[in-house]
Computed example of a mutant assay.
Amino acid sequence: MDIVKKPRERHASVIANLLNQNRYVFVSGKQMTSMLATNVDEVVRFKSCWHNLERDQYMADGGTYRYRRYGQFNKGKHSQQLVMLPHQAYVQPAAVNPLNGDVKRHFEPLTDRFIMSPILEKLLLMMSDVYDGAQGQATNWNIRLHPYRIITDGHSVGKPTPEGLHRDGVTYIASLMINRTNITGGETVITDDNKNVLERLTLDKSFDIVMSDDLATMHEVSPITPVCLDKCAYRDVLVIAFTKMEE
């Protein structure tokens, strides 16, 4: 008997197949907006959360161009519920992050406005469907969320990936474009393990997203500079890391 898949599951299956074939997949903001069944009011409220980030005090390069918050959820394989974890320090090994690794970084937690956004829940559940499909089975996931704002002005460039070409030491990594305001640059490069370029693309529209198999690829984003020096210039993204949890 044929089973008709729900629209979210059907789209997730297609994206999962592309992710497995190419080790990364780009989905346009237009398609994402349709898949998330969102509306203008929800989008405006979600995007406004990026105006309430705090400056990253842990930049080993001395940079003052990055603003962020941080939080974690777990998603069980037999559940459609996202469970927020107690707030804690964020640590990456130096082997993964040579710039800021092996340091307990105490970032400000995610705001209630961000956590309660209908978009966030729909986004994370959709992504778990994609990654379940890529794994070939329902999976227990740890999800780490990093909303970033990278600023630039006439005195300094902004560096979305100050650590350079890297991986994040997770199972899947994704970048969701939120706002791109008065900037040039910000090109995403995805490579294989041997640093051979697989793709160059620029996340341009709100909700443009690139999802990558972090175990099979590396990535970096080129610096940004302002187009008009007398206006604010920044790049807002949500970086979403899914890590497969042990049974």
Rank of each mutant, 00 (worst) to 15 (best):
240 I>C: 01
36 L>Y: 00
64 T>F: 12
162 P>K: 03
79 S>C: 06
98 P>L: 05
78 H>C: 15
42 E>G: 04
41 D>H: 08
240 I>K: 00
25 V>W: 05
33 T>I: 12
145 L>M: 04
82 L>I: 11
138 A>R: 13
203 L>Q: 01
91 V>I: 13
85 L>F: 04
61 D>L: 12
74 N>A: 09
100 N>T: 06
119 I>A: 01
227 V>F: 09
88 Q>N: 11
187 E>F: 08
100 N>P: 01
15 I>N: 02
240 I>V: 13
171 T>L: 09
109 P>I: 05
210 V>K: 03
88 Q>F: 02
155 H>Q: 14
239 V>R: 03
221 V>G: 03
195 K>P: 00
16 A>M: 06
55 R>H: 12
166 H>T: 03
194 N>W: 12
226 P>D: 02
48 S>H: 10
96 V>N: 09
19 L>D: 10
132 D>N: 15
108 E>W: 07
13 S>H: 09
54 E>C: 15
94 A>P: 01
90 Y>M: 12
240 I>Y: 02
232 C>L: 14
121 E>T: 14
113 R>Y: 11
69 R>G: 01
144 R>E: 13
208 D>R: 03
223 P>L: 08
88 Q>D: 12
246 E>N: 13
161 T>S: 15
209 I>N: 00
21 Q>N: 14
27 V>K: 03
81 Q>R: 12
130 V>A: 04
25 V>N: 07
51 H>C: 10
33 T>R: 11
114 F>I: 04
135 Q>E: 14
121 E>I: 11
40 V>G: 08
151 I>M: 07
137 Q>G: 08
135 Q>Y: 13
196 N>G: 13
242 F>H: 01
30 K>I: 03
44 V>T: 13
48 S>P: 00
19 L>P: 00
177 M>S: 06
133 G>D: 08
110 L>T: 02
127 M>D: 01
163 E>C: 09
111 T>C: 02
51 H>I: 06
66 R>C: 07
228 C>P: 04
99 L>E: 03
47 K>G: 07
124 L>G: 07
84 M>L: 13
47 K>A: 10
198 L>T: 05
174 A>W: 02
9 E>R: 10
126 M>L: 15
116 M>L: 13
182 N>R: 09
207 F>E: 00
143 I>C: 05
69 R>A: 06
76 G>D: 12
171 T>A: 12
8 R>D: 11
52 N>L: 11
76 G>K: 11
33 T>H: 04
201 L>C: 07
3 I>M: 13
141 W>K: 04
